[in-house]
């Protein structure tokens, strides 16, 4: 292995151990989305007409929200590294710059796969029935990972920039808010026109539509055929573009902050 690979693997291992042992945030990351899922399904769901059972409509959005929420924990982990002594020590060693950030990103991806699986399990238990075949599943997981990857890099950027744990945790609210103004819980057509403009064009909507189209294709509201393909392309472009943007900015800010 090259030195760079050793650094990256070692720091990814570190990130995973830290995430695994932070039981509190792990539970929060799974429990909160489950509560939201139950609330939307049983409290609001009855009043919302989405053309299909509400759990079928909302689950893809909830899964996305889980992923985003979990990624936000990365902002706090990075902030902790920056304000503690760890970054100073790593910088005084021949460790490739920025690999510590990569370690956090890898840990976030694994953590979010786990919490997402938990939320999916609960959704299945209360009536979510995906129609996806193996290929669709693969596609949905792939798009979700791309989304988590992009969100995580934005969380890393926040972690590098902020100067307190409180500010880092504030990022969570921003990430939690985005899916509400998308097609996650209600079709965007039901929103006022000014909000619809934002909801239709923000990155979360094409990602949700793609996951919905892949997991529960054929149900009312889920895109199919060309619409699905176009949405998927848009989702991938958004996620990759944002990841490149945020990763670049985070690495740049990391190198500058002293």
């Amino acid at each position: 292995m090259t030195a760079l690979a050793i650094d990256a693997v070692t720091l990814a291992g570190r990130g995973l151990r830290l995430v695994r042992r932070d039981v509190d945030s792990m539970i929060t990351a799974a429990v909160l989305p489950v509560v939201i899922l139950l609330m939307f399904t049983y409290v609001f769901g009855g009043a919302l007409d989405v053309g299909t059972s509400y759990v079928t409509y909302a689950t893809p959005g909830i899964i996305l929200l889980t992923a985003g929420f979990g990624a936000a924990g990365t902002a706090m982990a990075v902030e902790q590294d920056m304000s503690g002594g760890m970054i100073d020590r790593l910088r005084s060693m021949p460790v490739a710059a920025g690999t510590v950030l990569v370690g956090h990103v890898v840990a976030s991806l694994v953590k979010n796969l786990l919490t997402t699986a938990v939320v999916f399990g609960v959704a299945a238990a209360i009536g979510f029935r995906p129609t996806a075949g193996p290929l669709e599943w693969l596609g949905a997981v792939g798009v979700l990972l791309l989304f988590v990857h992009a969100i995580t890099w934005s969380a890393v950027l926040v972690g590098v920039l902020v100067r307190s744990p409180d500010a880092a945790s504030g990022f969570t609210f921003f990430v939690m808010f985005l899916p509400y103004v998308s097609s996650a819980f209600v079709p965007v057509a039901t929103m006022p026109s000014w909000m619809r403009g934002f909801a239709e064009h923000q990155p979360v909507t094409p990602v949700i539509e793609t996951v919905r189209g892949l997991l529960v294709g054929g149900t009312p509201g889920a895109p199919q055929g060309d619409a699905l393909a176009d949405g998927a392309l848009l989702a991938v472009v958004w996620c990759v573009g944002l990841a490149v943007l945020f990763a670049g900015a985070a690495t740049w800010a990391f190198a500058r902050r002293r």
Partner: peptide, 29 residues
């Protein structure tokens, strides 16, 4: 050729003592 031990402790509270040292040794290649 150097090592720095700053005022703030540069070890992870959620890793064991052995894991912390092993990680640093690996990062020193």
């Amino acid at each position: 050729r150097i090592s720095l031990t700053g005022q703030q402790v540069a070890i992870d509270l959620k890793q064991t003592g052995r894991e912390n040292l092993w990680m640093m040794a690996r990062l020193a290649h």
